[in-house]
């Protein structure tokens, strides 16, 4: 009988082994890999520039709001285990906290942060 984490570690080993087998079978089956590089595809014409560039996204503000909530989850996971133990206070405090965060979401929503077309 393995502990919970030991069996997960073992599982990781099995998955990696499985992937090695799959790649091995492919190396045996597939003709020799081409050594040359091919041009990236965008419809048949050669690219004029490298695609690696500073990629502009219109959803940067959402990442900030997301981080706030993601941190909040750190509190919420342990909280679920003590709700009935702590009682009403636990529920009131957690949802007050969530309500404050959500007020920020409403504000951002009104500013149009969640829609970018």
């Amino acid at each position: 009988m393995l502990t919970a984490w030991a069996s997960i570690l073992l599982l990781l080993g099995v998955v990696v082994a499985g992937l090695v087998v799959v790649y091995g079978v492919s190396m045996w089956l597939a003709p020799a890999r081409s050594v040359g590089e091919v041009e990236p595809f965008s419809g048949g014409f050669a690219p004029e520039q490298h695609a690696f560039s500073r990629f502009h996204v219109r959803w940067y503000p959402i990442t900030m709001i997301f981080l706030a909530f993601d941190m909040e989850m750190l509190f919420m996971y342990p909280w679920v285990k003590v709700v009935s133990e702590v009682g009403v206070a636990a529920v009131v405090e957690m949802f007050l906290f969530l309500a404050i965060l959500f007020a920020g979401v409403l504000y951002a929503g009104r500013e149009g942060a969640f829609r970018w077309t």
């Binding site: 799959v22 079978v25 492919s26 089956l29 597939a30 003709p31 020799a32 890999r33 081409s34 590089e37 091919v38 041009e39 990236p40 690219p47 490298h50 690696f52």
Partner: peptide, 14 residues
């Protein structure tokens, strides 16, 4: 089909 197909690399790929 995919097992038999060789991989390829694009220009200056990571």
């Amino acid at each position: 089909r995919l097992l038999v197909q060789p991989s390829r690399r694009t220009t200056a790929a990571d």
